[in-house]
Amino acid sequence: MDYTQPQFWPQLQQLAATIDGLDYFQVLNLPSSAAGNQVRDSYYALSRALHPDKFFHIADDVTKAAVHKIYKRVTEAYTILKDEKKRIKYVADISGPDRAKKLRFTEESEAEQKEQQKMATKVAKTPKGEQLYQAALLEMKKGQWDKAYKNIQTATVLESGNAELKALLADLDKKRKGG
């Protein structure tokens, strides 16, 4: 497909809109068995067609944005697939049950791991308290500050030594009074 011809631009928009659903092999238009030199050849061919420099003189910002989005993903696909170790991990990732989440190469970051651990540690110490806390979270999401306040208030009665619940209660009190 000659992306440089104006009649293909609508397709360019479509590709930009759907590229998040493609894996790197699809982005580079390659079978998953493609050899290293094919990966490079495809990267070069797509660079000739889609490198932002080729669209430098175009005034149409929408087309430019689409080209940028697609080309950045081409670069990303090349970066991962040319690296043997990363390619192996990637192929395993997209062959597994989490395929949809792993279309873009992910190396779980240390920060995210820590964040998840933090999320896993429960705020409330008792089963009933946790139940009230979870209910309050949902209500807070909906902006139902009064309901959330009442739930947390009950939880603080159950767990009188829980400082986090107390702090949350104070916050909610401000919220429900329009703070």
């Binding site: 940028h68 950045k72 990303e76 090349y78 970066t79 873009r104 995210e112 964040e115 933090k118 919220k175």
Partner: peptide, 18 residues
Amino acid sequence: NTSIPIDRTRTFVTAADN
């Protein structure tokens, strides 16, 4: 030594209420 242009995304979750 990563080819450019490129982008990466990271997700951050709020650590405090509100």
